[in-house]
């Protein structure tokens, strides 16, 4: 099913970040310990349950897991592609007989794995602060894989489009991070006025955070604010849309590799 070539590139990509835990896993671990300590324990102690029955630390965990997962998946893919372009060693891949699909899927798969590992690390750190019981495990796993793959695919586009390292920083800090922060990570949509609830629905991060929260805690803002007829299928619909979006992004990745965008003269 997976060719030797695909496995070789996938392995290379995995080893690149696994061998550098100080650069890849330690920073999100430390950052999230701080998030949980400051927002969860110090401030969270003064905040009422955002939704009944779910304490603030517990409510935070899914959002922080998504934030860490997508940031790392995006960062890994964009860095790997851009750094390879910058130093031209991506030519080792480009001059090989790997198909464009294999190239893209190897980069995406490895970056998604990094994102998922960081997500698990954050969940484990959260577990140190509060007990967690997974409510919809299968749904959670499916959503996390789709979200990680989606942002790995977007990271590939970022790595191909970027002209220097500053561009990568801009993408991560000025686009991704604000969208996630306004993606109901730290608050529930039910706490917003109806107008802002609907504005928030334009933010794709909302669906990701909400789906992961549904998978982990069994609670979904969508189920609370969506019209009754839609509510029953809201999480599944979110997952379906995210899956379709991921497929589109991966197809764009393959197309860009095929035409050599950012890769060839």
């Amino acid at each position: 099913m997976f060719s030797v070539g695909f496995r070789s590139l996938f392995r290379r990509e995995l080893l690149r970040f696994v061998r550098r835990p100080k650069n890849t896993f330690m920073p999100p671990a430390i950052t999230n310990v701080l998030y949980f300590a400051v927002f969860g324990v110090i401030l969270g102690g003064r905040i009422d349950e955002p939704v009944p029955g779910i304490g603030y630390i517990l409510f935070l965990i899914p959002g922080l897991v998504v934030l860490g997962t997508i940031s790392n998946a995006f960062e890994n893919a964009s860095f790997s592609i851009f750094h390879g372009r910058w130093n031209e060693y991506i030519h080792e891949t480009l001059t090989s007989p790997l198909s464009y699909v294999e190239m893209v899927f190897a980069y995406v798969a490895a970056s998604a794995v990094r994102g998922l590992i960081v997500g698990v690390i954050i969940a484990i750190i959260g577990r140190l602060f509060v007990p967690i019981s997974v409510e919809n495990g299968l749904f959670l796993v499916a959503t996390m894989i789709v979200v990680a793959a989606l942002f790995s695919g977007l990271g590939i586009i970022g790595g191909l489009v970027a002209r220097d390292f500053d561009d990568l920083t801009v993408m991560n800090q000025f686009i991704l991070r604000p969208l996630v922060f306004f993606g109901a990570v730290f608050y529930s949509l039910t706490m917003l006025d109806p107008l802002w609830q609907y504005v928030s629905l334009l933010n794709p991060m909302v669906y990701m955070v909400d789906s992961v929260r549904y998978g982990l805690l069994g609670y979904s803002d969508m189920l609370e604010i969506a019209p009754a007829a839609y509510a029953a299928v809201a999480p599944l619909l979110s997952l379906a849309v995210l899956t379709a979006l991921t497929a589109v992004v991966l197809a764009i990745d393959v197309y860009l590799f095929k035409i050599g965008y950012g890769l060839t003269d």
């Binding site: 030797v4 070539g5 070789s8 080792e92 090989s96 007989p97």
Partner: peptide, 13 residues
């Protein structure tokens, strides 16, 4: 390892 990777991309186990 660089060489092993390159060979791997060309399908060498």
């Amino acid at each position: 390892e660089v060489l092993m990777h390159k060979a791997g991309y060309h399908g060498v186990p």
